[in-house]
């Protein structure tokens, strides 16, 4: 091995070591207050359920895991796939996907608009995106009921402008859920987008126009690839938490159908079946992690085109 390669190799090692030190505090906090306790949940999923919540310590059982995937019909004792769990999972995924897309469609132009303002106005607008979130989610949701009610703002506007002749039912429908979810998760999309847009190199945009690209083409071929990291970050921040959301679906959507969050909540609460709740959450965690790693890997492969 030549000196040069050895020096390079040493430098690389030192760099990696430094990178571990830099990550250490975050990993430590996460280990104590997130990952470590989660191991307890993993353990719980393999125990016998306690009579009134909790588990029977030291008594191992696979009942929790069995109930995640299969159900024994309580009337004829036949065993089948846990159809209820599948349909709840499917609905949650669908709802989260739509929420993420809607948030992106509204958040992208907003973040872009903010990022092209002059600096002072820009800072102001960024703050303005977060100010509504200084009020608690529950109270915001109640205020939103006022917007979507039959005599609420939207319906009053619709009737007044003659678009409809009688109020349409929005509250307690999926529309209300989407409205509420987009509202709640908007800053989670706008802020990461803004953070990556703020430094767009507009010379590239200019070059695009010089090559006779239209506005849409510039947007699609230049701007979007440039801010891809922001899109990825924003989508993750919206998609995953909305999978587990449960206040908004309940207060605005009427809570007639369980979401994943409510299902798990039910097992830890009124259902008093902690092992099943634990097993369900581990399942969710695995699904999301795999999807996320896949997504990030793909995004970093195809994305960028800038600085690489």
């Amino acid at each position: 091995m030549s000196d040069a390669t050895r020096i390079a190799e040493n430098a690389r090692r030192a760099d990696i070591r430094n990178r571990w030190w830099l990550t250490a505090p975050a990993l430590f906090i996460l280990f104590v207050a997130a990952i470590g306790p989660l191991l307890v949940v993993l353990l719980y999923s393999f125990m016998l359920k306690g009579d009134f919540g909790d588990v029977k310590y030291g008594q191992f059982s696979l009942d929790g895991w069995f109930s995640v995937f299969f159900e024994r019909d309580i009337f004829d004792d036949t065993v089948g796939i846990a159809e209820a769990h599948v349909s709840i999972l499917w609905r949650s995924v669908k709802l989260s996907l739509i929420t993420t897309l809607l948030t992106l469609f509204i958040g992208f132009p907003t973040a872009y608009y903010i990022s092209i303002q002059e600096p002072r106005r820009r800072d102001l607008l960024v703050f303005m995106v977060t100010i509504p979130f200084w009020t608690n989610i529950l109270i915001r949701t109640f205020a939103m009921q006022e917007v979507v009610r039959n005599e609420g703002v939207i319906n009053t506007l619709l009737v007044w402008s003659g678009i409809v002749d009688r109020p349409i039912q929005i509250m307690y429908t999926d529309w209300a859920i989407f409205f509420g979810m987009v509202y709640v998760y908007l800053p989670l999309m706008v802020l990461p987008l803004y953070a990556s847009m703020e430094k767009i190199d507009f010379r590239l945009v200019e070059a695009g126009y010089d090559l006779y690209a239209g506005r849409f083409q510039v947007l699609r071929r230049v701007i979007i690839p440039l801010v891809k990291p922001g899109i990825v970050a924003g989508s993750i921040l919206v998609f995953i938490p909305s999978l587990g959301a449960y206040v908004t679906p309940r207060v605005l959507g009427g809570g007639k159908n369980l979401m994943l969050g409510n299902l798990i909540d039910l097992q830890f609460g009124q259902g008093k079946n902690w092992p099943l709740g634990s097993a369900l959450s581990i399942t969710l965690l695995v699904i999301v992690t795999v999807a996320l790693l896949f997504y990030v890997r793909n995004a970093s492969k195809s994305g960028g085109g800038h600085g690489h």
């Binding site: 990952i35 989660l38 959450s281």
Partner: peptide, 18 residues
């Protein structure tokens, strides 16, 4: 990367109980 994003991936109630 997986560790840092882990709190995102578990519903709140699970983190809460653990």
């Amino acid at each position: 990367y997986a560790m840092i994003n882990q709190p995102l991936m578990v519903p709140e109630i699970v983190t809460a109980v653990s």
